[in-house]
Simulated scan of single mutants.
Amino acid sequence: MEPTLVDGQGLVAVSGRAAKPGQLRCLEHPSRPGFWLVKRVESVDGPMMRVVSDNDDVEAVDSRRFGPVPIAGSWRVILKVPRRLM
């Protein structure tokens, strides 16, 4: 998610919120249980959302590869913790 986030940066996220385009969300990879991703919501269609990476310089693992994902079970990022505080 560079340049938005940097390696090792902490996040605070909450569940139970509606997804909206532009939000950062934490979600479990649809094909790799236990592997979590941080992505930006591109669009919302009912209970599903398309998520994308902010970094166009790398081959992204996002909805362009695995398709829409459920909003249920995702977490909305509400705070980015500066790396210097980690």
Rank of each mutant, 00 (worst) to 15 (best):
E2R: 15
P3M: 13
P3A: 08
P3Q: 07
T4L: 10
V6K: 14
G8D: 03
Q9C: 00
V12G: 03
V12K: 08
A13P: 03
V14D: 01
A18N: 15
A19E: 05
A19C: 10
K20Q: 14
K20N: 09
P21T: 14
P21M: 13
G22W: 07
L24D: 06
L24W: 05
R25S: 12
C26P: 01
H29N: 13
H29W: 01
P30Q: 06
P30N: 07
R32V: 08
R32K: 15
P33Q: 07
P33F: 08
G34T: 10
G34E: 04
F35Y: 15
W36P: 00
W36G: 00
L37N: 02
L37W: 05
K39W: 07
E42A: 07
E42T: 02
S43R: 09
S43P: 01
V44I: 09
V44E: 05
D45E: 15
M48F: 12
M49C: 11
V51L: 08
V51D: 09
V51C: 02
D54V: 03
D54Q: 03
D54E: 14
N55K: 12
D56R: 11
V58A: 07
V58Y: 12
V58E: 11
E59K: 15
A60D: 11
A60H: 10
A60V: 04
V61G: 00
P68L: 11
P68C: 04
V69Y: 00
A72S: 15
G73W: 09
S74D: 06
S74K: 01
R76A: 12
R76H: 10
V77I: 11
L79G: 04
K80H: 09
K80T: 11
V81W: 07
P82S: 07
P82F: 03
P82V: 11
R84H: 10
L85P: 01
L85Q: 08
